[in-house]
Simulated scan of single mutants.
Amino acid sequence: MPEIPLFPLNVVLMPGTPLPLHIFEERYKQMVDECLESGGEFGMVLSDDSGTREVGCTASISELVERYDDGRLVILVEGSQRFKLNNILSGGPSGKPYYVGEIEYLQDEEATGDLQALAEENIALLERVVEAATEGSVDIEVEPPYTNLSFGIAGRIEFELDTRQELLEIPTEKGRLERLKELLSEAAERLESTRQATEKAKTNGHLRKDWRPDEQQGGGE
């Protein structure tokens, strides 16, 4: 059973998505330095008041952004591969000050059916969410075989941690895209409704810019 350095944190990392990390604890500074030297990865798992989850994602350090004089580090990592955490080790013969996890890597179950329509629906919904929230647009490629497209989309939305963890644990890309479609539909409708209400509120009690004194109310004569 593989063993990897473990970084429990109140964060959900997803495959293919970037994440900046500020490392200040001595044990994790050592862990990061060892990974930088060896080129190895460490595992990230969501840990909060509800405990440590069983499914996490390995993190590959893509950039050492800054190293401060006191040893603190700012790094940029990218999610690599989902894993199941079977056991957490600390101390022991290795003498490591940080946690080590006994894990098994998770592979997606074989996809069934054509994902193209489902993928395009999710992209369209993401466009709606981004437009309603920021009036911006989305630049994301949609090409077969859509591997980890769900994580790429979810990484652009600030879902609650439990929702992100739910998506991480779904064992198929089709299942993740189906769940994501539900989440994005709800978010788009909520944001669009809020935006319409805000725009309507801005006009209450104010004359339209194109209003003329001779206009008749109701359109009658």
Rank of each mutant, 00 (worst) to 15 (best):
D49P: 09
V130P: 02
L89H: 13
C35W: 00
V138N: 02
T17A: 11
R208L: 13
T147V: 14
E127N: 15
E160R: 15
F159E: 09
E166K: 14
G101Y: 06
Y28L: 08
R67P: 02
V129T: 01
S137P: 00
D48K: 11
S185E: 13
P171Q: 03
R27L: 07
L13S: 00
E215H: 14
E199M: 13
R53H: 11
G39W: 08
S193I: 07
E104C: 05
E160M: 12
N10C: 15
P15Y: 00
R176H: 06
E127W: 06
E37M: 09
K96I: 04
N87M: 15
D214P: 03
E131V: 06
L180F: 00
E199L: 14
V32Y: 03
T58A: 04
D210K: 09
Q165N: 11
R72P: 04
E54M: 09
R156I: 08
S62I: 13
S90Q: 15
V65S: 11
C35Q: 05
I157G: 02
G79N: 02
E78Y: 01
D139H: 07
E120Q: 15
D139R: 12
E169C: 10
P145S: 03
Y68I: 03
L191M: 10
L167N: 05
Q107W: 02
L183Q: 03
T194I: 07
Q30S: 13
L207K: 12
L76S: 09
L89Q: 12
G218P: 02
V32D: 00
G51C: 09
V100A: 00
N87S: 12
P18C: 01
G91V: 07
G219K: 12
A133T: 05
E26I: 03
A154N: 05
A124S: 13
A187Y: 10
A59N: 01
L126R: 02
K181L: 02
R72Q: 11
S193H: 09
S62M: 14
D48M: 12
S47W: 09
G205M: 04
D114T: 08
M31Y: 00
K181M: 04
E143I: 07
G101V: 03
E141Y: 04
N122K: 04
G43K: 03
T203R: 14
G218C: 08
L106H: 02
P15C: 07
F24T: 01
L36V: 11
Y98R: 05
K209N: 10
I88K: 09
I23H: 01
E221M: 10
P213F: 08
R53V: 14
K202Q: 13
S185V: 08
E166Y: 11
T194A: 15
L73C: 06
V55M: 10
V11N: 05
L73D: 03
L183C: 04
Y99K: 08
P93K: 13
E166C: 07
N86G: 15
W211P: 02
G71K: 14
P2L: 01
L64V: 09
E109L: 14
E189W: 00
I103C: 01
S90R: 12
C57N: 04
V74W: 12
G113F: 10
W211R: 12
D214Q: 15
S50H: 12
D139A: 07
N87Y: 09
N148S: 10
G39P: 07
G92V: 13
